[in-house]
Structure formats: C-alpha cells, structure tokens
Design a protein around this nucleic acid. Sequence first.
RNA 1: GGAGAAAUACCCAAGUGGUUGAAGGGGAUGGUCUUGAAAACCAUUAGAGGGUGCAAGCCCUGCUAGAGUUCGAAUCUCUAUUUCUCCGCCA
Length: 427
Amino acid sequence: MLDLNLIKTNPQKVHDALMKKGWDVDFEPLLKKMDKRLELIQEVESRKAEANRLSKSVPQVKKEGGDVQQIFIKVKELAKDNEKAEAELKKLEDEINEFVLALPNMPDDDLLGGEKENNKVISTFNKKPEFGFKIKDHVQLCESLGLIDYERAAKISGRGTWIYKGLGAQLEWAILNFFIQEHLKDGYTFILPPHLLNYESGLTAGQFPKFENDVFWLKDQEPKKFLLPTAETALVNLHRNEILSEDELPKKYFSYTPCYRMEAGSYRTEERGMIRGYQFNKVEMVQYTKEDESDKAFEELLHKAESLMQKLGLHYQVSKLAAGDCSHSMARTYDIEVWIPSMGIYKEVSSVSNGRDYQARRGMIRYRDKETKKTKYCHTLNASGLATSRLFPAIIEQYQQEDGSVVIPEVLRPFMGGISIIHPIKK
RNA sequence: GGAGAAAUACCCAAGUGGUUGAAGGGGAUGGUCUUGAAAACCAUUAGAGGGUGCAAGCCCUGCUAGAGUUCGAAUCUCUAUUUCUCCGCCA
C-alpha cells in the first residue's frame, strides 16, 4: 500500500511514478475524501469526548436525581448526533482503503517507464550453446527419454498439467534438493507452509484485490481460502501484524511449494510442454529487512539466484524490468531468463524483486528502531530460487546430445544417485 | 462433524458494569550492597492506531476480532476466529 501521507503532501510525485507503470491516477477525489475524513473525525471525536466527560460525572451510587436524568438525556443525544457522521466516516474510510489498496507499488526512480520493450538486458552468462546437429525441443526429448507424461496428465487432470515420471521425477526432485541445500548453506530458514491461504494473506502480499480471479479458490470454504500462487504469499505473511526487534533483521526464509495459477486465457502454442501450467514447482526466497538495507538484500538475492544458474552451467541473461513490467507490488524487479534453444528465446526462471514497504504497510509488518524506539515498516523482498518449470526444459534442451541423450549437470548428480546421463528409451 | 471450556500486556495471571489502561507474580533494564557474581533490597518497564498542537500536552479508539445492550463494558448479549478437552469419522 502506498503511503497516504505521501499522496497527500506530494500527489504529483506519486502520480508521475505510477504513470511509469501505465497508471494514470487522478488523486483529486481521494484527497477530497481524506480532507472530509479529518473533518468528520474531529466532529465525531469531540462529541465522544463530551459524552465521556458527562458519563464520568455520574455518581457511582445510583440516585434518581434530576441532574442525572439530564445527563442521560444529553449523552443519548450526543450519541444520536454521532450516528450519521460515524456511518459516513466508515463509508469514507472504506472508500479510501479500497482505492489505495488497488494501486500498484511505485517503481524506483531509476527505472524506465513503459512495458517489456523497455526491459534492459544487463548481463549474460555463458555462451549460447551451439549444436552441430538438429536439436529437439523439450517436449520431444522428455517423451523419448520417458521423463514426462503429458497424455496421462490430461487424462487424470486436464490441460496445462504434466506428470513427472521415473527419472523425470528424480531429476525434478534433484533440482529442488540442490536449491534447498544451497539456501541452507547460506543460512536461510526452510519453511514448508500451508498451501491454502486466507484472503488477508493475499491482500497483504498485494495479489488482492487485483488478481482475485487469477488464483484457485476453494469452493464452499468459510472463511474463503485460495491455493497459493507462489510461496511468497505465505512467506511475506509470516510476520503480518507483528513488530519485530531490530536485532532479528534481516530475516531470511525460503520455501519449496508447488504454485497454483489460473493463467486464464494465456495459453499459447509456443508455451506447450511445461513452459506454462496450472501448477509448477518453485523454491522461493523472501527477506524482511530494515528500511535502509533492502538494496543490499536485493543484491544478495540476485546473486544467489544467479549462482544457482551458474552452478547448473546454463546460459542465461538478467533483465532489469521497465516499470510497467515489474510485479504489481514491487518497486523494482530483475528477471533471470534462461535460454530455451528450441524456442530461440529466453524465459523467466526467477524474478528478483524489492517491494520496499508496500507489503509491510498492507500487513502492518514493522520493527522497532533501537535508537528512537519508534516502529518502522520493514522492507520485503522476494526472489525465486528457482522455478523449475522453465529450468527443467532448459536443462533438457541445453544439455541434449546428438544421440538424443541428455547429460545431467554435475551439481545434480549427487541428488540422482550419481546418474550422469539419461538415454532414450528403446521402443 | 458433534458437545463443552477458554482468549487480558514480553510471559503467567487477578478482575465486582463506574478514577481499571487494567491488581499480583515472573522476566527484562537500571541501581544499592559486593573484589566480582549470586542472593536480597530499591527503582523503571503498555505497546499500538488515529486526531490536534511549534511543543509540553490534550482528545478518540484500544483487554482476540466485529456487532449489540447501557448514561457508562475487560466485565452483559450475539457472531466470527483461534486454542484446549471429550465424542464420532478417517489417511
């Protein structure tokens, strides 16, 4: 959530920042409501103060005196006068909230405005692999190697799903285990969260209200629950409504969960296979930091995500996203994109983002400053580390051999019982 | 799924509808004593959100959350959430 005070004191600045994300917001009606709100608060509270004062003046021993009756009548009048104003105030505050909760985070000053076309590749790692033979795509390879069963997945579930099978399942599990081991080495705390979350969690993370239709909702559950679209949603809510001590920060977490997404209407033929599905596996990192340490944490997360790619020996690039392509809740996002040879393009395997205080304001996630003893909002950051659904195809394709076999990256072999190469199944 | 009980501050806990924003412990912090520590003793230790003011301060809200009754609610009523106990069902 954006700082209401900032909107009040410098609406132009907020407007211009959101403009870079393609949001042309007119703050005039909001500012009017905020002024009206203050007016009403003063009116209501002075009546309450008067009523409290009168009530206190009633003697504790009950007497049927005339004065007392007068007070009863007067206090009742005050309460009645307040009814309408309080209802109006409540409505106004709801409207203000609704409006502000829908707004995206402000992008950092250094970001270019606009959408994807203004994303900037800031680094690449490894050379594009050259193949001296006609390459196969991952769908063909997974089929011939017996790693993925798309047909039976369609049978038991539906489109947009797949089954990891045999060595395919082992490879997927090896990748996840490799990530987990790396994060543990770096001192991150491993969290296995519930996959069903309540509305408040989605609101704090910033998924709601904007993306309410993009997640899977459970039918007939009260209170309503949805399947997490990313572990970030769970991790960033761990300390909702808490005041942390400064010494605890930064807090560093990671989770493995499947991610459940509607991906409504986004299916394209180029995204066949496991490039885009309703459910994919991801290891996610989240940090809570002090307000002046989130830039440092951002560098750390980016470095960690990159180091996983480097250890896997994959060719990838890092893109600094333009404001309009950053996540809704985020002030800055860098994507790590892996080369998919058959598609001839780079696909996102990790988004590294700094949310600054946007999520913390929504979820009242704070810490106490040691010197001033005042509470401040934490900064929250998240980074995939990593999502496997693009990584698995990338490994299969980048490591494919002329005979149709696939070499297993060395770092994964210990997690696969030492298997170093997967051969096509003989028919 | 059914039946009951509970929710008070960092923790434990008292609490009668009216100076209760809340007794009492513990813990923490500071001090006295001590060569140092422990013990003992003394002191401090209620946060949070909002309004107003240059400020000191004052005002509103606040005892899980939301409604209600009342001149007045931690205290009475209703609803939700969570926890515990018992019963049933079940991997």
